[in-house]
Every structure is written in C-alpha cells, then in structure tokens.
Nucleic acid binder design. Structure first.
Length: 433
DNA sequence: ACCGATGATTCTTA
DNA sequence: TAAGAATCATCGGT
C-alpha cells in the first residue's frame, strides 16, 4: 500500500514537474513521445493520473472497468516502464537494508537447550539420554525408576506439544508465504515487483514467524525446567540409604574413628558395597563426622553397638588365628590391604591392640586394619566417649589419654593430644535443624 | 501435623 | 581443593 501511494506520488512528480522526481532523481521522458504534440500527451497523462487518483472513490464495478481501461490504455507500457525504473533505483536502498541476517544468540541458546533436554533432538535418543543423565545425577538408586518413567512421560508430552505447535507454525508460515507470493505475483501484472522484493517479503514473513517460534521455544524450555526441578531435584527425591548400606558405612566409620577419612579407594569400595555413588559416600562421611563431633553423646550408644559388634568379630577371628598359629608375633606387620575396612582377616590385630595397651609397641607401622580394631576396642573399653589420639604421626594410642571432647581432628596434630584446642562449648551449635 | 533424622547442597575456610 | 559448617528439603516414626 505504501509503495503504491509512493509510486503514484512519484509518478505525479514525473508528470507535473516535467523531468524530475522527488529526491532529485533525473528520469528519462516516456519513450519517443517528445515532440510537437507534447502538450496533448501531457494532457493524456494528466487524465490517466486523475483517473488513478480518483479510482478509490468509485464503486468496484466502475473501478474494475476503469482498471481495464487503464490496462488497455496506450500509455500504459510507458508508465509501467517508468515505474520499473523508479523501482530499480529505490531497490538499492532495499537491498542495502536487507543484508542484516545474523543468527540470534538467544534463539541459538534455546535451540541448544532444547536439544540437550531431548525435546528438539532426534526422536528417541534425546529423551532417554536426558532421563539417563538424570538417573546418573540422582545417584542411580533403583527405586526411582517409577519417577523417571513419569518424568520421561511428561517430557514426551512436552516434546509432542512442542512439535505439534512447531509444525502448525511452519505450516501457517508456508501457507502465508505462498499466499503473499501469489498476491505479489498477481500484483506484478499491474505494478513492477522484482523477485528480490518478493524474496525480501518472504524474509520478513519468516522473521515474524520465527519470533513466534522463539516464544514457543522459550515456553517449552520453561516447562522443561519446571519439570526438571520437580522431578530431578535431588533434595526433593531424597531417599534414605538402605539399612544394610548404613550399617556398612557405620561399621567403617566407627572402626576408623581415629581417622574417619576413607581414601578414594575405600570410598569406591564402600560405594560398591552400599550400591551408592562415591560422592554419596563422601557426603555421608562429611555429615557423619560433623554430626558425630557435634553431639558425641547422642552417637555413643551407636558407637558402642558397632564397636562391640566389630570386637566380637575380631575376637572370633583371633580365636581362630590363635588356634591356627600359636607363634604369631605381635610385631608382625599386617598384610591386609591398606585402607580396606575388611574385618574378617584381622586375626592378629587384636593382639596388636593388647600390645599397644601394654605400651610395648613403639614405632612400628600400624596397618589400617589394626587401626580399625584399635578404634573399635577402644570404644568397648571407654564407654565415656570422647578421646583423642595421635596415631597418624606414629604415636601410640593410649587409653589413658582420653579427651572429653572427642574429635579426630586432633589425631592429625600430635601436639594436641593432651590439650584440645576446641572447647566443649563450641560443639553444640547444631543440635537440630 | 509434628519433629527428629538424614541425604544433599552451598558457602566458608585453611 | 577437600573438609567443615550451615542450611535446605524430604523421609519416616509418632
């Protein structure tokens, strides 16, 4: 519409001002119509223009008739060629403005996200991959498969809606584009429309539709995010570890009370035994250490329980070992795997412990299993709870150096055996949530 | 519904 | 960077 009126104005400019149009563009006169009868021709053009200008005031039938008459008018080709030239020249600015087509970063972000979430990717792989990733992130426990299938179902639902809507948009876009192109082709009979112009129009349409698509993508992303946070937030779907797993972890913890920091290997082994991840083991030990330290009294009973349990196991093992090998020396280094919390093959450990209690075990290497037993039995002996030791530096465990505080932190600093830096008052900030 | 227990996360610290 | 500390959010028993 704009183009049309502008062209009409331009055309009027050609006619009324003689040889110039707006913008200072010099245009050639209509082909071969300059001459003696120039005034008559001008009159003709004036008539035509007048008819064009007043065409909107007429009825449709009248206008159709006038249109037909104009189309058949002898001046029509000449005017048309003028219009073509004008269009050709103004087309330069259109072409210049058309050249901006950078990929929208936001759209790319949304596309990547949808792809990563398995919404816009290939039909099957995406969704299950995302669900698998979610399963891995959540620790992979077996009892949440129902929730995962639920999650998958919802994701599939979102995916379907997304694709349906996308298809609808694309269809609408194509239909509209076709329609506009037909319209322009139709119009190109009466006014000059270059293919470039049609192309540009199509580009505009596509841009408009892609902005709508972006909104669709955005809301899909939001939906997926909400779904994720609802289903996959680890805190929401926290499950207590199995009783067996807790037992295994506690056994390790209380049998390594002087240094409850399992190595990576030990963590891996514990994770395997408990069917949890290594990071879950780390979390567990982190929580356990801090909670134990903050309220030793509360854990005393538990500690005794596990200590007794382990001691009984050890005693049985010792009995068996003594029977089998009467000459076993207390100073024999433990051949058990370091860092392992295996309790079974600790036959000589109990004897080591007894030696320790008798203060006759200076400077020898204490294996991890030995240490386990020491810790365990210490708990059986000292039911009061707190103690402190310095085994890490090669010092001996001394049952007499008890510390009401409790805390293995001091174990790593031999100097603190008798004087813990941490007062009892600093221990009870937690108590509860 | 309440409340303690507990697994996970986040921030701080050494 | 790992451990400590605080906190969150859910579980599970009552």
């Amino acid at each position: 519409m704009d183009d049309q009126s502008r062209m009409l104005q331009t055309l009027a400019g050609v006619n009324l001002a003689g040889h110039s149009v707006q913008g200072g563009m010099a245009l050639p006169p209509p082909h071969g119509h300059e001459g003696a009868d120039g005034d008559g021709r001008k009159q003709d053009i004036g008539d035509i223009l007048h008819q064009i200008m007043t065409i909107t005031d007429q009825s449709l039938d009248e206008a159709q008739a006038k249109k037909h008459a104009l189309n058949c008018h002898r001046m029509k080709p000449a005017l048309f060629s003028v219009l073509c030239e004008i269009k050709e020249k103004t087309g330069l600015s259109i072409r210049g403005a058309q050249e901006e087509d950078p990929p929208d970063p936001q759209l790319m972000r949304l596309d990547n996200m949808l792809l990563a979430e398995g919404v816009s990717g290939p039909e099957k792989g995406g969704g299950s991959a995302a669900a698998a990733a979610a399963a891995a992130a959540s620790g992979g426990s077996s009892d949440n498969s129902i929730e995962h299938s639920d999650y998958r179902a919802k994701l599939t639902q979102i995916r379907q809606i997304y694709h349906t809507e996308l298809e609808k948009y694309e269809q609408a876009c194509n239909e509209f584009t076709t329609h506009v192109m037909n319209l322009l082709r139709e119009q190109s009979r009466t006014r000059p429309i270059s293919p470039k112009e049609i192309e540009r129009m199509v580009g505009i349409i596509h841009r408009k539709f892609s902005s709508i698509q972006m909104q669709l993508k955005q809301s899909t992303c939001e939906a997926v995010m909400i779904l994720r946070s609802r289903f996959l937030d680890a805190r929401r779907k926290r499950r207590n570890f199995s009783k067996q797993a807790t037992e295994i972890l506690n056994e390790y913890f209380y049998s390594h009370l002087s240094n409850p920091y399992p190595s990576e290997e030990a963590k891996e082994e514990l994770a395997k035994k408990c069917s949890i991840t290594v990071s879950q083991v780390s979390n567990w030990f982190g929580n356990k250490r801090i909670r134990y330290k903050k309220n030793i009294g509360k854990f005393q009973e538990e500690a005794n329980l596990y200590a007794a349990k382990t001691a009984v196991t050890a005693a049985h093992a010792v009995a068996a070992a003594v029977q089998n090998n009467q000459t076993n020396s207390p100073t024999t280094p433990n051949s058990g795997s370091s860092g392992s919390f295996n309790l079974p093959n600790s036959g000589d450990m109990f004897m080591n412990m007894q030696s320790l209690n008798g203060d006759s075990y200076q400077g020898s290497q204490v294996g991890a299993n030995v240490q386990s037993q020491v810790d365990t039995l210490r708990h059986v002996i000292n039911q009061t709870g707190g103690y402190s030791d310095a085994l890490g530096g090669g010092s001996l465990y001394s049952p007499h150096n008890l510390n009401a505080n409790g805390g293995w932190q001091d174990a790593t600093t031999p100097s603190s055996v008798t004087s813990p830096t941490e007062g009892p008052g600093s221990v009870h900030s937690d108590t509860s949530n």
